[in-house]
Simulated scan of single mutants.
Amino acid sequence: MELHTLVALTTGVTLLTCVLAVVGIHIYAAGGAQRAALIDRLSYTGELPDSGRRRRFRTLDRRLRRTTPGRKLELRLAATGLDVTPGEFLVGMLAAAAALWLVGAAALAPFFGPIAGLCGIWAALRFLDWQRQRRIERFIGQLPELARILANATQAGLALRTAIGMAAEELEAPAGEELAKVADQLSVGHSLDDALGELADRLPSRELVVLVTTLVLSNKAGGQVVSALRNLTETLEERKETRREIRTQLAQVTMTSYAVPVLGIGALFLMDGVKDGALARMTGSPIGQACVIIAFGLYAIGFVLIRRMSRIDV
C-alpha cells in the first residue's frame, strides 16, 4: 500500500513538473518574442516614416544597429527620408552588386565582374549621399519661412516649444517632418538643446547650425528671440538667392564631371562592339588588367577633381 502511494505521488509530481516545464517554455518563448519586438521598436529612432508596411530582415536590422557601421548607416538613411531600414538597404545593395557583377562579366569580360560589383556598391552609397544632400537643400530652402513662423509665434507670446510644434504643422516636408520629430522629443522630456542638436546632426548645414545656435542661445540667455529671428530671416533669404545663382552657373561643370566616367565606360562597350572578344583578350594578361585598373583610377581622379574645383561654399 505504501509502495502504491509512493508510485502515485511520484507520478503526480512528474506530471506536474512536465506541465510546469511546458508552461515555462511557453512563457519564455512569448517573453522572448515580446522582447525582440520591443527592441525592434526602440531601436528605431523615429526616423522612418510610419508607412504601415511590414519591415523585412528584422533580425539583420537588430544585428546591424549593434555595430558602429550599422548605426552610421541608419543615421544616413534617416537623413535621406527614405522608408528603408538598414537591413533592407544592405540586402538590396548586395543584390544589385551581385547582379552588376554578373552583367559586367557577361557583357564585357570576366575581369570586369568584380569592378562592376564594386561600382554598384559605390553607386548605392553615392545615391544615399545625393538623396541626403537633396533633402538638405530642400530643408535649407524652407529655413527662411521657418524662421519667419518662429518669429511670428514668439512675438505673439507663444513659448519656443509651442512655436516649433506650430511650425511642424504648417510647413511641408522635409521641414515639417523634421520639426515634428523635434516636437515629439520635446514632449517626452528631451531638452531643447539635445533635440535641436540631433536635428543639426541629421541635416548638417551652415544655415541650420546658425538657426539652431540662435534658438539655443536665445533660450538660455533669454535674449530677444524675435529680433534675432527677423535678422536671421533676411540673411537666409540672401543666402538662398546666392546659392541658387551659384548652382545655375556651375550646372555645366557638374554635368561634365558625370560625363567623364560615362565616356570611359562607353568606350569599353565600343571597343567590344567593334571587335568581339577584344576586352577578354586585353584583360587576359596582367599588363592589360593593370592598364584597365589604372584607367579606371584616372577617371575616378578626374571626377573627384572636377567636383572639388566646382565646389563653392557659401
Rank of each mutant, 00 (worst) to 15 (best):
R244C: 03
E245M: 12
E245G: 07
E245P: 00
I246H: 03
I246W: 10
R247P: 04
R247I: 04
T248P: 01
T248Q: 06
Q249S: 11
Q249T: 14
L250K: 06
L250Q: 08
L250R: 12
A251D: 02
A251W: 07
A251L: 11
A251S: 13
Q252I: 09
V253H: 09
V253F: 04
T254D: 09
T254R: 15
T256Y: 10
T256K: 09
T256A: 14
T256I: 13
T256V: 11
S257V: 12
Y258T: 12
Y258M: 08
A259D: 05
V260C: 01
V260M: 07
V260N: 01
V260D: 01
P261G: 08
P261F: 07
V262C: 03
L263V: 14
G264I: 02
G264T: 03
G264M: 09
G264L: 05
G264H: 03
I265Y: 08
G266V: 13
G266R: 05
A267G: 09
L268E: 05
L268I: 08
L268F: 09
L268K: 08
F269R: 02
F269I: 05
F269W: 14
L270W: 14
L270P: 01
L270E: 01
M271V: 13
D272I: 01
D272E: 15
D272S: 03
D272C: 04
D272Q: 14
G273Q: 11
V274F: 13
K275L: 11
K275W: 03
A278D: 05
A278C: 01
A278S: 13
A280R: 09
R281H: 04
R281Q: 14
R281C: 03
R281F: 00
T283W: 03
T283Y: 00
T283I: 09
G284M: 12
G284A: 10
S285V: 07
S285R: 12
P286D: 08
P286T: 05
P286S: 11
P286I: 03
P286A: 09
G288H: 07
G288K: 05
G288S: 02
G288E: 07
Q289G: 01
Q289V: 05
Q289L: 04
Q289P: 10
Q289R: 15
A290E: 06
C291I: 15
C291G: 07
C291Y: 09
C291D: 05
C291P: 00
V292S: 09
V292I: 15
V292R: 01
I293S: 10
I293P: 02
I294D: 00
I294F: 15
I294V: 15
A295G: 15
A295S: 14
A295N: 02
F296H: 10
F296L: 15
F296W: 03
G297T: 08
G297E: 11
G297F: 07
G297I: 11
L298T: 12
L298P: 00
Y299D: 02
Y299L: 14
A300G: 06
A300I: 08
A300D: 04
A300N: 01
A300V: 08
I301E: 02
I301N: 00
I301A: 13
I301D: 00
G302L: 04
F303N: 04
V304C: 00
V304K: 06
V304L: 12
L305P: 00
L305F: 07
I306D: 04
R307M: 06
R307A: 08
R307E: 04
